[in-house]
């Protein structure tokens, strides 16, 4: 059945309400009439039924989803990957409440916005029957009527003072929104791709200089550490004269080796690997690679030289002087000696 769209503009609310009354008496159901305006007229001002409001419920659902997300972030993650921190609880309650609050609110707001778009079927880029004068303070009444009633409806509109009357066939006008749609789709795909890449950094490796070792600042701030000249007189701490033991070495007793293993696991293994072969979890980030401690090159060094390397660092290896006391360094050296193949 052929349908006709009629759009008329009115100057104010009373004549609009009269028109709507008369259209209704003509037998036009409320949902076939749309009122458009440049400011929010309340439905009762125009004698219209209140539109259905589902947005509040959508916001509530969003808040719930946000709360669940917050629970995952604060509780779920740390049950999956427990992170011990100085005897604190794995899931501390008060800080979790803060995150739960923020996530709930974020969920509510994002859901409200998305709900607004969905409820209004936004974005609409195809041409709709509309008149730009509506944002100049006119009220537009859009009626969708069957062809049989079209003339009667039109005369109701004109009788009540409608100006700038539009009358078009209700068959769908052509869609003009393709470019914008594809641009938006491309944007969404891009955002999604970046999101996936951020999470899949371990699988899809994008070469990007992120290591401090690659920065100029390592050279600037961490100048070469040289051994003190032979004639220097130590005033505090271990004596760092090349070729001489800095402090009294400790004999490789069972206890010393045990301490050395624990300290090695804490301080050295992250780069040199648990068994000292230079393949720790971070070794991939360095060039040259961390030294293989079990090999000839390291094992042929004297104890004093190894002590110096731990104390001062060498190449990309940082000084561990603040991490290991002199006695602990000897424990580690004893342990490293035990790794020899």
């Amino acid at each position: 059945m052929a349908e006709v769209l009629l759009l008329g503009l009115f100057h104010e609310a009373t004549s609009t309400a009269d028109t709507i009354d008369q259209l209704r008496r003509l037998g036009l159901p409320d949902e076939m009439i749309t009122v458009m305006s440049g400011m929010p007229y309340r439905p009762e001002m125009l004698g219209r039924p209140r539109p259905q409001r589902r947005l509040g419920r959508i916001s509530l659902l969003g808040a719930l989803a946000g709360c669940l997300l917050g629970l995952f972030l604060t509780v779920g993650i740390f049950l999956l990957y427990p992170l011990e921190q100085g005897g604190q609880p794995i899931v501390p309650v008060p800080p979790s409440l803060i995150i739960l609050f923020e996530a709930t609110m974020l969920g509510a707001m994002v859901a409200t916005f998305v709900g607004l778009l969905l409820e209004n079927r936004f974005p609409i880029f195809k041409s709709q029957l509309y008149d730009p004068r509506i944002t100049e303070g006119h009220i537009g009444v859009l009626a969708q009527v069957g062809a049989a009633l079209a003339n009667q409806a039109e005369s109701i509109l004109t009788a009540n003072g409608a100006h700038h009357l539009h009358r078009v066939d209700a068959s769908q006008p052509p869609d003009r929104g393709h470019t914008v749609f594809w641009a938006m789709a491309a944007g969404a795909v891009l955002v999604l791709a970046i999101g996936v890449l951020l999470i899949a950094y371990d699988i899809v490796k994008v070469s990007f200089p992120t290591q401090m070792a690659d920065q100029d600042s390592t050279a600037y701030e961490q100048g070469p550490r040289l051994a003190a000249p032979a004639e220097a007189v130590p005033i505090q701490g271990p004596v760092l004269i090349a070729g001489q033991p800095a402090t009294e070495p400790i004999s490789p007793t069972v206890n010393s080796l045990q301490r050395g293993q624990v300290l090695f696991g804490i301080t050295c293994a992250v780069c040199h690997g648990q068994d000292g072969t230079g393949d720790g979890p971070l070794s991939g980030y360095f060039s040259p690679k961390p030294a293989n401690l079990t090999g000839e090159a390291v094992q042929s060094l004297s104890d004093a030289e190894i002590f110096l390397v731990i104390t001062q660092g060498r190449g990309l290896m940082p000084s561990l002087a603040e991490n290991l006391s002199p006695v602990e360094r000897w424990d580690v050296i004893n342990y490293v000696r035990s790794l020899k193949k």
Binding site: T34, V35, M36, S37, G38, P40, Y41, P43, L46, R48, R50, P51, R53, L55, G115, L116, L117, E119, N120, F122, P123, I124, F125, Q128, Y130, I134, T135, G140
Partner: peptide
């Protein structure tokens, strides 16, 4: 986004 100022849009 295709805003026309319909009653539903204003209410939402």
């Amino acid at each position: 986004l295709g805003w026309r100022g319909t009653e539903r849009e204003w209410a939402n």
